[in-house]
């Protein structure tokens, strides 16, 4: 029974990881390796020519730069806006506080995919198509982040901040020296989530960019021109190059990621 379970589990896990493993292996394939009989799982030689071609015969480097830039700036702005809003909603008393909070959080109900036509028209009116601002504009607000940060901030009592303010502490100093360091774990989790959401977004950047030079890597990857000619080597190389750093990070951070998920989604 025990060995059966271990065997089934291992077979299933190998199936799940197969596309990733195959992509790494195929990134070293020569053209003839793809058509060899019987089918090859491992490359005939370890040759990095596919990687060189992926960069020299496409704008992969530019795509990657665009993606990193928009993801980093987008994440920073998104966290700043969320922290500021969550802080205000948790520590200030003002007219209409609850109504405004609900106004923001209620947008969790609007699926962004259903709004892309109207958002696209707004971005076009603002003349922001083919700009970095246009790519990140719609992802700057994360109502879920504001909601979760407020839940977290409210664990600290309001008197705490009032005492600090009476002692002459400014809001900015209170935030940067006390609240943010205290909430490091949750802020980091949300920031990582933001980064990967913006980095992996597909439909929106596809719509708001037309110039090749403004494409993000997720969009650019599907338009490199290799796979259309069944020239799979460089395409697999580009994909492998992109996913390797994240794979390494995921393997080394396996434990903390698993734990943060169990805390966030099962309420423990």
């Amino acid at each position: 029974m025990k060995t059966l379970r271990a065997t089934l589990s291992t077979v299933l896990s190998l199936l799940v990881v197969f596309p990733i493993a195959y992509s790494i292996s195929a990134s070293f394939f020569q053209y003839t390796d793809f058509t060899a009989v019987p089918a090859r799982l491992l490359p005939s030689s370890l040759n990095i020519s596919n990687y060189i071609r992926a960069f020299s015969e496409s704008s992969l480097a530019r795509f990657l730069f665009n993606s990193l830039l928009t993801s980093i700036i987008g994440t920073l702005l998104r966290m700043a806006i969320s922290i500021m809003a969550a802080y205000t909603f948790s520590f200030f008393a003002f007219k209409g506080r609850n109504a405004l909070f609900i106004l923001i959080v209620a947008t969790m109900l609007l699926p962004s995919d259903a709004l892309i036509i109207a958002n696209f028209m707004t971005i076009r009116t603002l003349r922001l198509t083919d700009t970095y601002m246009g790519i990140i504009a719609t992802s700057l607000l994360a109502p879920t982040h504001i909601f979760m940060l407020r839940q977290y901030f409210r664990m600290m009592s309001v008197e705490y901040r009032e005492a600090a303010i009476i002692e002459g502490c400014t809001d900015l100093r209170f935030l940067t020296t006390l609240l943010i360091p205290m909430s490091k774990a949750v802020i980091l989790t949300l920031a990582i989530h933001s980064f990967s959401t913006i980095f992996n977004d597909y439909l929106w950047p596809l719509l708001v960019t037309n110039k090749t030079s403004m494409r993000t890597v997720q969009v650019g990857l599907t338009m490199m021109g290799f796979s259309e000619h069944l020239d799979y080597g460089p395409q697999f190389a580009a994909i492998t190059f992109l996913m390797t750093p994240i794979l390494i990070a995921f393997i080394t951070l396996h434990k903390p990621i698993t734990e943060s998920v169990s805390i966030r989604f099962t309420g423990r």
Partner: peptide
């Protein structure tokens, strides 16, 4: 377990192209 959660590390369009 590590193998099972690895697909999460691969971006959507990368996975689809693979």
């Amino acid at each position: 377990q590590i193998f099972f959660f690895l697909p999460m590390a691969v971006g959507m369009s990368s996975m689809l192209m693979i």
